[in-house]
Structures are given as C-alpha cells and as structure tokens.
Amino acid sequence: MRAFTGERAARRGPMLVGGALLLLLAAPLYLGSYWTSTLILVFFYAYTGQCWNILGGYAGQVSLGHAAFLGIGAYTSTALFMFAGLTPWLGMLAGGVLAALLGLCIGFVSFRFHIRGAYFILITLAFAEIFHLLALHLESLGGAQGLFVPFTGASWAKMQFKGNTNYYYVALALLVVITLVARALERSKLGLYLVAIREDEDASRALGVNTMRCKLAATAISAFFTALAGAFYSNYFFYIHPDEVLDVELSVDILLRPIVGGAGTLFGPIVGSFILTPLAELSRAYFSKEGLIGTHLIIYGLLLIAVVLFFPRGVAPYLARLVAGKRTS
C-alpha cells in the first residue's frame, strides 16, 4: 500500500477506517433523508470510481468508456426483471458477466493492437458511444423513452424499497466489498504486475509478465463490478435512460473521483467522492434552479485542470501524510 506507510500510520489507519465505518453504519439514524440520499450517491460514485481505479489507476489504462459497463449492468438486470421476472440480485450478476465479456472484447481489441495511453482513452470512448447510440435506437429496450422500472412493493428479493435507508445499506455494502476487492488485488501478484505495467509496460514484459493477460484480467474485473452499480442504479432511481446510464458524462463522472482523490491508491476514489459528490449535488441543485444547466460540468472541467496542474497524484496522498502525522521534512 502506497498511501499508508510508516508504523504509526499502520496503527492509526485501521482504527480510523473502523471508526468511520461505524459512523457510516449508524448514519441513517441521525441524518435526515436528504443527507442519506447524498451519502448514497457518495457511495455510488466511490464504488464506481474504485471499479475504474482497478483498470485506470493500478493498471494505468485510463478508460473513458466505463458508462458502457454500467449501462449494460443497468439494462441487463432491468430487462431480466421486467421481462422474465428474475430477481435483480441475479440480474446484477448476469449484467456483470456480460459487462466482463464486453470488457474482454474491448480489451482484447485494444491490447492486441497495442493501443495505449491517449489512444486507449479514445477507443473506450468510441465503444461506449456505440452502445449509447444502440440503446437509443433499440425500441425493445425502451429506446429514447428509457425504461421505467415498475414498483411492485417493497421487498429485499426484488431490491425495491420504500424510503432510502435500505438503499443506503446496499450502497455501503457494495462500497465495502469493492474496497476489499481492491485491497486484495493490491496485495496480490496480479496487483503488483498491474502496477509494474503502469510504470513501464515494455520493461515488465521483458521481465516475463504476461501483460496481455494481466490487463485483460483488470479490464474484466473492473467491468464486472461496474455493471453491479448499474443494477443498483436502476433499482434506486426506478428509471434508466441511455443519456443517463450510457453517456460520456457518466464516464467522466466515474473517472473524476479517483483522479481527484488519487488514482492507483486504495482510498483515492473514496476521498474523491466525499469531496466531489456533495459539491456536484449542491451545484447541480443550485444552478439548475437558476436555469443554468451545465454549470456543474464547468466546475468538473476546472477541477480536472487544477488536479492535473497541481495535484497530479490526487489529494489522498496528502491526506495520508496528515493521518500518518508526519510533520518532519
């Protein structure tokens, strides 16, 4: 783990995480509905950011097409639920598998032809836009009307709830799971290979790392978990539309948190989401009341510029240093 080094941090880190988790577990009890739903979005974007981080952060393959994976998850689980009555919990996994397969295809095409860096950004964007346009024209999946998920009574089996407390716990559970996955990955051989690929792909290949297989694995894992968020999205909002779940804007939303927080660090996406999501929600609510749609995206743009110029490694490393209590140097 790069973010938390040093002995004191090793002791403080887990205590802090545990304390924060306890606070968050009890949060719906003392927070009102508004803040609970804000936190749900914080978890949602932290989760998707962590999924992105596996491919874009650790492996260094920056994707601008993660909306495709999320959208596939949303559409698969929703369609299976509406047309076959399958519980979203299984539909979620089905969407995840489909997204992982798609990820393998995109990854294979890209990596086989040595598409890296800026070109990888472009090709993932192009793939995602194709799915966006396809969904807009597929009448059987609602086309440009989108799909309304029918509410059939609150039940855990259908992942449909009244109020947002249960959604809160589902989102929190998802975030905990993906963080554990990322942590396990970080300590695994695969994780080390991925970091090696990010730092110098040619050198790691020369040293015998099967870069193709490692990058494909990262893509599949990242895509699979991103799709789960899509299923959650459709069950939380009861409505999916290609311009919402398959749009470039969502891909930007997904990558922004880990970039701001710190790509390739375990807590980067979470820190990024806690900073950005409330900010985005507030500005969206405030400016759309003024009739100024798009203002929050100006803020996103300025943030991206500022982060690249001043914090190219994100803000999490700075916070980690604070936590570690390093006042020397």
């Binding site: 990888f120 970039i259 743009g301 991206l304 982060v307």
Partner: peptide
C-alpha cells in the same frame, strides 16, 4: 506548457477539462 513532461493520459485529462469548460460555458 506546464505539463509537457507528465504522462500523456494526464495531458488528455487536462484537455478534457478544457473541453468540459468550453462546452458547458457555451451551454450556459
């Protein structure tokens, strides 16, 4: 000119930021 030596993904992200600002400024 300030980021000539950072990895190209970061350069693209900077330009993506510029694009977001310009597009949405037009929109607003």
């Amino acid at each position: 000119n300030r980021i000539l030596h950072v990895p190209e993904e970061m350069q693209v992200l900077l330009m993506l930021g510029v694009a977001l600002v310009l597009q949405n400024a037009t929109l607003v």
